[in-house]
Design a protein around this nucleic acid. Structure first.
Lengths: 131, 131
DNA sequence: CAGAATCCCCGCGGATACTG
DNA sequence: CAGTATCCGCGGGGATTCTG
């Protein structure tokens, strides 16, 4: 979406008309799914997420959590203690999503080798004439 | 991945260790899924895809098709006629993927209203104190 | 502990023009 | 018809620093 004039409109139209894009927008972003997976077992604290998800920055963890919260996929519970304690938990809707994502993961695991081999074959086939 | 030094390594490790990211890398990108959906009915020509997928550019159609082909998700068949005719078709593996994507789409349709309402609620809740 | 703010890089993807 | 090639802008997201 790098257009200045029509970008917003097109995006809105696509999102409304196309459930495919709608779900992808929800699940895209580098960290959304991993957060959903990490939080699937039950309430989890900010720092636990941070340590459980390899490579995520504080910033992105916060941002992604905010978006998930906005979409009604996680709840954010602040315990007014000191030091502060904030727990995140999946909503029922997110739990459904997590189940269907599981199928995708299964697919990936079943076909990981096939894909790797396809890539390798494709690369040999197409690289050998350049350099 | 905007790092210069560790970027490649981290990505590779993640892709190998984490089927979640692996499948997302396959499915992310603005057009991959829509192409898979459009090609699900059977062999389809380049131009048919271009017209069937609202808003896609020639460039992105080509690039995304190349990637899908590289991953062994679509086959590319060139008919040596004039004018040229190129047909794309899903591989069995991609057809499996398409089925599981269907579940995701179903989820999106079931919960589209819930998500929209959640967003609206969140926005009212958080915007009213600024400006 | 759980963020908010700021800066900055790079790569996705759009627009446009040219070819076998 | 089915691409390639080039240029360019936006925004995702990393690194870093500062707070209640």
């Amino acid at each position: 979406m790098s257009q200045r004039n029509t970008g917003v409109t097109v995006q809105a139209v696509n999102a409304q008309a196309c459930p495919v894009r709608e779900v992808l927008d929800r699940v895209s972003g580098k960290w959304s799914v991993q957060i959903l997976v990490a939080a699937a077992h039950g309430p989890i604290r900010f720092t636990e997420l941070e340590r459980g998800i390899e490579g995520i920055s504080r910033r992105m963890l916060t941002l992604t959590l905010r978006n998930l919260e906005r979409d009604g996929l996680v709840t954010r519970t602040v315990h007014p203690t000191v030091p502060p304690k904030v727990e995140y938990e999946l909503t029922p809707v997110a739990r459904e999503l997590h189940e269907t994502l599981q199928r995708l993961t299964d697919w990936a695991e079943r076909n990981r080798v096939y894909i790797a081999e396809s890539r390798a074959a494709y690369d040999v086939e197409h690289d050998k004439e350049q350099v």
